[in-house]
């Protein structure tokens, strides 16, 4: 009996040691919309195949992702919020920032389009109409990259959304689309989430293509100077790899529900 226990114990210790033999995993904070797009499921295995580095993804809101970087809880951050990224780097929390791809945001709304924005080319005109008609608009309201983008657009159009028609949900993109569908409201979403949800919600794509709706993605290593225990080497490897030709080709060829989603920025 005692012998058996010894054997089991020894095996347990051996098994726990095997974990140490692997290369230390790379912790990456990213946004839920990035993870929901499915792109990481394509990129990360390719990266691991080439470098042997396992990537652990923590999908949260942009604000939280950057905060995790600031606190040194992760090694690398992949987000889409230009101003916040620049601030993050300027304050010394991040290094080696690269903008490596972009996709775009779209305005969706009820199929009946009560505010009549369908034929507007410019997103500013569309949003003005929504505000004038006081048509329901469901905002993320969670300080996420998408929410920041939306606020920028209102500001650029010189509009201040307020009132019972402007619904600040404080939830993720998918949930906000469901709410817009249930409440017959408009919303702004990244194209990835829209493609994933368009079959499940009672909404239509009503405005897209304006330059202002572009959504560039950045990847930033967490500063080794601020957090010496960070896995900077692996983070740098990740950034170099994602800027490389093969990775950029993968991004270009990625399809979600048969439609291209991301446009690589570093493809020569």
């Amino acid at each position: 009996m005692l012998k058996k226990i010894r054997i089991v114990t020894a095996l347990l210790i051996l098994w726990s040691l095997t974990g140490l033999l692997h290369a230390a995993p790379l912790k990456m904070a990213t946004t839920t919309s990035t993870q929901n797009s499915g792109l990481l499921d394509l990129l990360l295995p390719a990266f691991q195949k080439q470098t042997g580095i396992e990537v652990q993804v923590i999908a949260v809101g942009t604000g939280k992702a950057l905060k995790m970087g600031r606190d040194g809880d992760v090694d690398v951050v992949m987000v889409h919020a230009v101003a916040a990224e620049e601030k993050f780097v300027a304050e010394g929390y991040g290094t080696d920032r690269v903008q490596f791809m972009y996709n775009d945001f779209v305005i969706v709304g009820p199929k009946s389009d009560p505010a009549g924005i369908k034929d507007e080319k410019s997103v500013t005109a569309a949003m003005t109409k929504i505000l004038e008609q006081q048509a329901k608009f469901v905002s993320r309201g969670d300080d996420s990259g998408t929410h920041k983008k939306e606020k920028t657009l209102w500001k650029a159009a010189n509009l201040t959304p307020a009132g019972s028609w402007y619904i600040e949900a404080g939830q993720g993109m998918g949930k906000v689309l469901q709410m817009a569908s249930e409440l017959d409201g408009y919303s702004m979403t990244d194209r990835g989430t829209w493609l994933a949800y368009k079959g499940k919600v009672d909404l239509a794509l009503l405005n897209a293509g304006d330059e202002k709706l572009s959504n560039p993605y950045g990847i930033i290593a967490v500063s080794k100077a601020k957090h010496p225990d960070t896995n900077y080497t692996a983070a740098k490897q990740m950034i170099d790899w994602i800027s490389s030709e093969p990775a950029q080709q993968l991004i270009k060829n990625y399809r979600l529900h048969g439609e291209p989603l991301f446009i690589p920025l570093l493809l020569k």
């Binding site: 309201g141 969670d142 619904i167 600040e168 949900a169 404080g170 939830q171 949930k175 709410m179």
Partner: peptide
């Protein structure tokens, strides 16, 4: 739905 000033209560606000 965690709507500001309407359905956002303490627990959903903490989550947000």
């Amino acid at each position: 739905g965690n709507i500001l000033n309407y359905t956002r209560n303490i627990p959903t606000a903490i989550a947000l």
